[in-house]
Design a protein around this nucleic acid. Sequence first.
DNA 1: TTAGGTGCAAACAATTTGCCGTGTT
DNA 2: AACACGGCAAATTGTTTGCACCTAA
Lengths: 127, 127
Amino acid sequence: MNGKRYSRQRELIYEALMHTEEHPTAEMLYSWLKPDNPSLSLGTVYRNLNLLADEGVITRMAFPVERYDGNTAPHSHFCCDRCGRVYDIAVPYSESLDQEALKRSEHQIDRHEVLFRGVCAACKASR
Amino acid sequence: MNGKRYSRQRELIYEALMHTEEHPTAEMLYSWLKPDNPSLSLGTVYRNLNLLADEGVITRMAFPVERYDGNTAPHSHFCCDRCGRVYDIAVPYSESLDQEALKRSEHQIDRHEVLFRGVCAACKASR
DNA sequence: TTAGGTGCAAACAATTTGCCGTGTT
DNA sequence: AACACGGCAAATTGTTTGCACCTAA
């Protein structure tokens, strides 16, 4: 049927992802695992990452394609899980969030952006 | 010298971007402008978008490459402007932000993520 | 006149896919 | 044995670049 079975490669990729803080790209994972697994192929890394992400066991972090925004002031966005469209959302900028982040890390925090997710009005209507 | 001069194409692209809410990709802008500007080329769209973004007049919205995260709980990230590395940041999830967004839009808000920007500890050290 | 800009096509980079042999169940 | 999986390479897709011509200043 439509079952999924054990695979050493998938396990490797999953474990590598779970044991790093680096939010790696497919290429990074590949280069980490390749030395000890010379037969591993990049296509397999991509296939398994997609598989795991579709299952919800791991997360994809980015828009697949670059998007541009005429508004250069820091502001929030909403991205629809169903259609992928991106909208502005006018929630006020919270300085205190930057302070929070500063308290909890060693980094220099210049600004932040919030990305909301859910189902957009248009998609809700067409259901 | 290093001057920049007027260009009809750049103006077109900039105006298109300023008059939409859609956070378009280069491809989208191209397809909008092409019908009335048959000689426009996609390369020009990319070139001008990069130019405008480098100038700070518009904003690039995404990680250029897909990254993956083993942590599926909604949580915040920090991305270094200098080296591009991505870190987790443990600021507590704010339910009230979702409520704010809900109040200000017609969308169904399921969750959000915060992306902080600045210079990471590692990069600060190596200066 | 002279850089900077454009169009076009080729180059590059990131990701997906088809094919076919292998390994899990 | 059946069929999901991995390897490999070719195909797609998104983006950049080199070059010859064009155009604003």
